[in-house]
Nucleic acid binder design. Structure first.
Lengths: 231, 231
DNA sequence: AACCGCTTGTGAACGCAGGAACAAAGTCGC
DNA sequence: GCGACTTTGTTCCTGCGTTCACAAGCGGTT
């Protein structure tokens, strides 16, 4: 139960959330937190949070709670954040530009070491302190930087080809924003972020509970509440 | 088993993926597909796919497969795509601009009816055929358009306030890109897309299977494989 | 020094999702 | 017209994730 009995994937995702909350608490000067408070801030069940944390050994004090900075460092260590991860980003359209300029990655140990695009119009632009490079230089940069994470923000038609190129050059993890299901060789992790799917799930869940608009949240049960009174 | 015994959320997400694949197949002129082929294209198990599809009643022909266009329409109907969903987008930074300009939403029945930003520098810009409006007009637009979906792409500090404003005005579903856990009243669906979390999970899974680089995918067991041979 | 309240960590039950195997049903070939 | 093949729809089972509930341990107090 120490280090390698495998941590469930769902737990890992939540650990990342706890880490974010703890970082905020540490910046606020908080010394300790209880599981209840932390769970509330992370939007999960307190018991589940304690079980998640139990995967990395005892790290709290009974009767007191968790020491914020200690727990933060512990989670950061488990998630492998002590060493920065080099990433390459392929596809510098609107979304790719947003990702390249997003500051939230650097704070969490992820650094883009190369931006690539097939369009000559994009090549040569600078985003932050990185130039957009042509696809021909992808293999070269991957060999030099040993980047292990590739982010795909290209149109759907070329995403599979980019994926093949990345994996062939040794990339072991891929974050894909293109709306296609990628097939990658075994040993390569692929995570898909499909914005349309998110919206469709959201709309369906709303529709599923929609037939009863007199829900709990709004206190007025009869009127259709045309949002007139709130402004 | 007809319409409302509740479809599992995981199934709904996959249905959206099937829908995307089917749309592509229909455009290619394909008449029928088997569950095996469709499952392969969607990256899931054939049995699981058939189970997912069983939630919406029998829709295939034994010995033949599924009729592409029929199945597509059926799924589209279940997901509520026959009627367009009006969305508002708050926070027109890099990411917000990318979302506003992304064409993948309109094709799937989601339409932005309002773009909002607190910064006067952004207000008045046009993205596509929509102007960026000040936050003061949010309630008004929500009341007029009856938009039920709100997308938050603001900095983390103001996301909760925006969420409160959206829910107070009747928005029932929220897609949040800000790295904070939102608290919303009951009856409001919130989906979180946290790009850093995705990267951290990816990096952890890689690290977890990393200590054994002689994995299944690469046939070479000894060398460190400095990515030289593939290009 | 002993008690009491608070909080963690763990064990057990519940429910759900995923995968494999089987039966029903329809089509194609003879 | 009949048999065999193909593919769906379903059922069972295994494993995982989540939740509830309890025992163990620590700090503060008297």
């Amino acid at each position: 139960m120490q280090s390698r009995p495998r941590i469930p994937e769902a737990t890992v995702a939540r650990l990342a959330v706890y880490l974010r909350v703890l970082t905020g608490l540490a910046d606020s000067g908080r010394g300790t937190v209880s599981s209840g408070e932390l769970a509330s801030a992370a939007g999960v069940n307190p018991a589940g949070l304690r079980k998640d944390l139990s995967h990395l050994g005892p790290c709290g004090t009974r009767g007191v709670g968790y020491e914020v900075s200690t727990l933060r460092d512990r989670i950061a260590g488990v998630l492998g954040m002590e060493t920065a991860h080099a990433c390459v980003l392929v596809g510098i359209g609107n979304l790719g530009s947003a990702l390249a300029g997003y500051g939230g990655f650097g704070n969490r140990g992820f650094e883009f070491v190369g931006l690539f695009d097939a369009s000559p119009a994009r090549v040569g632009q600078r985003i932050g302190d990185l130039p957009v490079r042509p696809m021909e230089e992808l293999d070269e940069v991957l060999a030099e930087t040993r980047a292990t994470i590739g982010v795909i923000a290209t149109p759907a038609e070329v995403a599979q080809r980019v994926c093949d190129q990345l994996t062939a050059a040794g990339v072991r993890s891929i974050l894909n924003f293109a709306p296609v299901t990628l097939s990658a060789p075994a040993g390569v992790g692929v995570r898909q972020v499909d914005l349309s799917v998110e919206l469709q799930v959201l709309a369906f869940l709303d529709k599923q509970r929609g037939p009863a608009p007199a829900a709990l949240g709004t206190a007025l049960g009869t009127a259709l509440a045309p949002a007139g009174g709130m402004a």
